[in-house]
Structure formats: C-alpha cells, structure tokens
Computed example of a mutant assay.
Amino acid sequence: MERSLTLIALFAALIAALGLVPKFDLAFGVPITAQSMGVMLCGTVLGAKRGGLAALLFVGLVALGLPLLAGARGGLGVFASPTAGFVIGFPIAAFVTGLAMQQFRALPIGWAAGVAAVLGGVVVLYAFGIGGLMIMLNKGLLEASGLVLAFVPGDLIKAVLAGFITAGLAKARPASLLSRS
C-alpha cells in the first residue's frame, strides 16, 4: 500500500515535471507539451488503477490551484478553457493505457507500451480533448477534430518514446513495471 501511494505521487510529480519542458501554443490556444507522455507512462508503468490515480492526483492538484500545467497554469479556470477536455481526460487516458498494457501480455513490453500509449494517451485523450473543444469553443465535431490534427505526429512520437522508456525500465528494473505484475 505504502509503495503504491509513493509511486502514485511520484508519477503525478512526473506529469508536473514534464510540464516544465518548454511548450508552444498553436493559434487557437492549445499548447503542445510533454505532459501527455507522463500520462502515457503512468499507464504503461503503473497499470490501470495506479496510473489513473496518479493522473487524477495531478488533476486534483491543478484544480486546487497549483500551477502544474505547462505554462504554469492551474486553478479552476483551467476547466473553463479550450484545454479542459484534455485535462479532464488525463486520468481516463492513463487508466485505459494501463488497462491496454495489462491486456497486451503476449506482445513484447516495448510494443505493448507503444500500442497502449496510442490507445489511451492519444485516442482516448483526443476524444476528451475534442469534446472539450466542441463545448468550450462551440465547434462541431469535424471542426474541433480538425483543430487537433496538428498534434497527432507529436503525440505518436510521445507514444513511441513511452514504449522505449517502459521497455528500458522493464529491462533495468523488472519489478518496477507494475502494469505487468
């Protein structure tokens, strides 16, 4: 139990730390950041439950006002911005990534982590992000989907990196990969 709590807190901190990687904003206000890779790693390393809880802890800290999102953003105002769907989707994306990782036991760890990261950290996260854009910007599905197309290549690269990082971690410290235990 204590180990799980520590890892949940550590991975919430990892998501926050990845927000320090310099971001850049697209014209409509949604930033490209490394934080979604932290969400992917929560699932690939910690598994569904712990990974989802780590991302939920991160979102809770942001809601309390801690400036943990890229660009030092935090507080309830984040949930009224175009990025609200992405932030709200973090815990579900981490959970789905972890669930997929747990289901893909037949695949080598790197491949399983990469595919799981695409499913949870791209497909699920984009579903929430597009929903948020539709609501906050009063856009239709096609229009909101078009706004996020520029993110796809970068997020696919993050998913590949999550696969490599998870495989490297599994090789260096096999017991630390809780998504496979």
Rank of each mutant, 00 (worst) to 15 (best):
170 A>P: 00
18 L>I: 11
113 A>R: 03
15 I>T: 08
178 L>W: 14
175 A>I: 11
37 M>K: 02
31 P>H: 07
1 M>G: 12
4 S>T: 11
7 L>S: 03
27 A>W: 13
12 A>L: 09
138 N>V: 10
174 P>R: 09
52 G>I: 13
19 G>F: 04
1 M>P: 07
11 F>M: 15
141 L>G: 09
180 R>I: 07
64 L>T: 14
69 L>R: 06
79 F>S: 03
6 T>G: 10
163 G>K: 05
170 A>V: 10
143 E>S: 14
52 G>E: 05
135 I>M: 12
106 A>P: 01
86 F>P: 00
117 A>D: 01
144 A>L: 02
146 G>F: 07
22 P>N: 07
65 G>A: 12
2 E>V: 15
103 Q>C: 11
172 A>W: 12
181 S>E: 13
94 A>Q: 06
79 F>M: 05
100 A>W: 07
135 I>H: 09
70 A>H: 02
149 L>Y: 07
148 V>P: 02
137 L>W: 11
43 G>V: 04
21 V>P: 02
113 A>T: 06
126 Y>K: 00
59 V>C: 01
107 L>E: 04
53 L>A: 03
72 A>S: 15
140 G>D: 15
46 L>C: 02
63 A>N: 08
90 F>Q: 00
111 W>T: 15
6 T>F: 13
60 G>D: 08
102 Q>C: 10
111 W>F: 14
58 F>H: 15
101 M>K: 08
11 F>R: 10
141 L>E: 09
38 G>R: 03
47 G>Q: 03
